[in-house]
């Protein structure tokens, strides 16, 4: 298997893809298969785990190992797989409802522990598979089947939740930005601990245009800021604007008239304190640009490695555990 070069086709399963025509998931599937081929990922060692929802059908379409589990529980199942066999490359595919509503607990705890899982969250701000109810990322006022007068709950920002949970690698990309998506996936594949990627994804049936301000050619330059390590935060046509810090607030300004280029925040996703990454994740998307790219990238002890290190340590100290000795431990006596 290693001898032959695998192509994108080799990562496609024999199952017909059954997402709605025009769904953003197609582009993501295509990008994942492309990057997997490019990286020559070992199909046998790759496991894709998902929960429930449109995005969670993903494993069926990948010619790797795959486990389509139950609603919200993919990170928990994936944690078990990774702990049982740390050699496996485990990817979790989930959605905004799956990861942040029913599965919120597993999501934050997997990131907190820094289990070596790559979590791809397709965020379309709607429940698609159940045909159009508001999700935990729907905006206040979103009119859906279950919120005819507008949703009232304040939405989660997935990146903020991930940062709050202590995630070591956090990124955001967009279904239709092929190049950026592939670049992000490539970076994700190299992460040793938990990697979290929010992929802004369009549901053209139930929430079409949810990310229009990010993806529309005419306006996107004014609404997107790219986070690149070592680069200043600039956006707008011809990078007319920049982002700078005023106290704990991030503010935008016109470079030249309202401040100098040197005022821009120079992006560093690897600072010890995640405060600025959090501030960027919390930018109000109606007034400020939406950051794309890597919010956070730091090294932390990897959970499954720590677990197996403790086992190795115990074995080094106590030997490999003799069953007979275990049975006969404690106070014993003989009846003759």
């Amino acid at each position: 298997m290693n001898a032959t070069t695998l192509t994108k086709k080799d990562y496609k399963s024999d199952q017909d893809v059954r997402w709605c025509p025009g769904c953003g998931d197609y582009a993501i599937l295509n990008a994942v298969q492309g990057v997997f081929a490019e990286l020559q990922m070992d199909r046998a060692k790759t496991v894709i785990v998902s929960g429930i929802g449109c995005s969670s059908r993903f494993p069926y379409y990948m010619n790797t190992y795959g486990f389509h589990t139950i609603h919200g529980r993919a990170p928990a199942v994936a944690t078990g797989i990774k702990l049982a066999n740390p050699e496996l490359d485990v990817w979790v595919v989930t959605g905004d409802g799956d990861a942040l509503s029913i599965g919120g607990n597993h999501f934050i705890h997997a990131l907190r522990r820094n289990v070596g899982l790559k979590v791809l969250l397709f965020n379309n701000r709607i429940y698609g598979l159940t045909k159009g109810q508001y999700s935990p990322t729907s905006l206040v006022g979103a009119v859906t089947k279950s919120s005819p007068n507008g949703a009232m709950d304040n939405p989660f920002t997935p990146v903020s939740v991930a940062l709050g949970a202590g995630a070591a690698f956090v990124a955001r990309t967009v279904d239709v930005f092929g190049k950026h998506l592939q670049e992000t996936l490539r970076e994700t594949a190299a992460v040793k601990g938990s990697a979290f990627v929010e992929i802004l994804q369009n549901c053209n049936i139930f929430n079409d245009g949810a990310w229009m301000h990010v993806t529309d050619k005419d306006i996107k330059d004014d609404h997107v800021v790219e986070l690149r390590a070592g680069q200043p935060l600039r956006f707008g046509k011809e990078l007319s604007h920049g982002l700078r810090l005023r106290g704990f607030e991030v503010e935008k300004f016109q470079v030249g008239t309202e401040g100098g280029a040197e005022d821009c925040i120079n992006w560093n996703p690897s600072t010890p304190n995640p405060g600025l990454a959090f501030a960027m994740a919390q930018l109000n998307e109606r007034e400020m640009p939406v950051p794309l790219g890597v919010f956070r990238n730091v090294e932390r002890a990897n959970y499954e490695q720590s677990v197996h290190a403790q086992i190795a340590e115990a074995r080094a100290k106590l030997g490999n555990g003799d069953l007979k000795k275990l049975l006969h431990s404690g106070d014993t006596w003989t009846v003759s």
């Binding site: 486990f67 199942v77 994936a78």
Partner: peptide, 27 residues
């Protein structure tokens, strides 16, 4: 009893406990 090669995982809840076990069985 780690020297016996046991992986113990204190999960975040009962559901994660059984789900992690199911993942381990799969593996």
């Amino acid at each position: 009893m780690k020297q016996y090669g046991v992986v113990t995982f204190q999960a975040e809840d009962e559901i994660a406990a059984v789900c992690s076990a199911l993942g381990a069985a799969y593996a």
